[in-house]
Every structure is written in C-alpha cells, then in structure tokens.
Design a protein around this nucleic acid. Structure first.
Lengths: 112, 112
DNA sequence: ACAATATATCGTAATATTGCAATATTAAAA
DNA sequence: TTTTAATATTGCAATATTACGATATATTGT
C-alpha cells in the first residue's frame, strides 16, 4: 500500500529511520557535503552546485529541515542553512551502539 | 519523474545514500535491532517479531542485503542472516567526518 | 512604485516504495 | 514420495518520492 505502519514501531525506531532517510538520497548527501564546505552558512548558491532545478533543491532542503538534519532561517532574500550537529550525534550514537553490540555478540556465522 | 539522477553524484555520495536509505524505514531498523538480540543468527522468526506479513519481511531483508547491511546464506529451510559490520563502520566513519568538519568550521549562525 | 533577485509553493508526470494475498521454491521429515 | 515448514517470488493496489515548469512570495536596490 506504500504506507508505513509507523504506529507499530518504537519512537526511537521511527525517529532513527526519519534521520537516516534524510541521508537516503545522493542529492541530499551532496547538499550536506556542500553545507560543510561553506564556512559561513549563507547558502544561496546550492542550486549552482547541484545538477538540479531550483524547486527540486528547495524541496530537498525542506525535507532535510523537516527531518531535523539542517536548520535554517530567512535572512532577507537569502537563507541561512546549516547542519544540526545534534542530529548527526544521534545517528552516530545509535550506530556506535550497534557496532558495540556486534563486537560483543561476536557471532561467528556469516563471516565472508 | 521519481527517478534519481545517480550519474550526477560521486560514487561515495551514491553509496552512502544507499546504506542510509536501508535504515530509512522503521521496519528495517526493527529487523536490524532484532538481529542484534539474536546471538546465533538463525533468524527464521523475524516474522513473528514484526507486525508485517512474511512476504513483506522477506522483501525488507532482500533490500537490506542488496544495500550490504546484512549478509545471509541459505541453511536448509532456514536462513542465516546477520549484520555486516563493515557497512556500519562505513556509515560511522562518514558521519564522524561530518561531525569533525562541523566542530572544525565552528559556524556561528543557526545556533538555537 | 518598480524591477531584480532569491526562495517557496503548486501542479503534475514518472517512477519508487510499501504491503499483502496467492503461489512457487526448497529442503528436511515422516 | 508425500507432507511439512520456511523462505522467495509474483502481481497488484495504495501511497510516497523525485523532478521540474509555472507561479507566488518576499526583500533589496533603484
């Protein structure tokens, strides 16, 4: 049906999937990487850096913002967008836990 | 058009987005978490743990495997699935880089 | 006030994803 | 060999995503 049964999963499972999904498109990965290279976060020229039309970029930015990966505020005709460090930390902590679990469990099957 | 312009992005951007996308659904997050709790990785009962029909679980497992997040091999009527540690490490390294970049750049705008 | 510039929103087409019933496949067990 | 059990595949309906042209909005500069 194309609709996710969100209510059947834990809050953490849902919020992790939202954060990860935001990284789940190469355009958004490229946007994030571009934001990193720009020291000042006035980023009116993302459109020129990407092979995408302005409405498409705007939409990806909106999704990144909705997921909490970036923050932004209007500054005249330009927008100040930058990465929300704490969102990155949340994913990092989650994956670190997983990596620890794997090492701890030390499952011997499925080794290449 | 619903079709991603993969060819316009770097190989790294594409592969990161593939890995992250695999985590971009709560059912797959739940599957991964379940795999972690099972010491031996014979996981024939994922279906009983999740609020999803067997074909749906099978499909999510297929996607996780295609993305490289899990590995699996047939063992009679059951399947041995487990998490591919190196895939987790790849994401961890990538996000650590981003976090470092953020701290290093020390952009002062967009602070809450 | 008007033009220029930057970004957002709307509408829409193409494609992808999610979920499941039905069915197929596969190998162990009787 | 037939049944049983576990997983995969197929086909399909509902919904989501991606992308962009057209247009709206908003602010700056003249």
């Amino acid at each position: 049906m194309g609709v996710t049964k969100t209510e059947h999963y834990t809050g953490r499972q849902n919020s992790i999937s939202v954060l990860m999904k935001a990284f789940g498109h190469p355009a958004r990965v490229a946007i994030i990487e571009y934001l990193l290279t720009v020291k000042s976060c006035i980023c009116s020229d993302i459109v020129n850096e990407l092979p995408l039309a302005q409405p498409t970029v705007s939409q990806h930015l909106k999704e990144l913002k909705a997921a909490g990966i970036i923050r932004g505020s209007i500054e005249g005709t330009t927008i100040c967008y930058c990465i929300n460090e704490s969102a990155i930390e949340i994913i990092l902590n989650y994956l670190s836990e997983i990596a620890l679990h794997i090492k701890h469990n030390n499952t011997t099957c499925c080794k290449p």
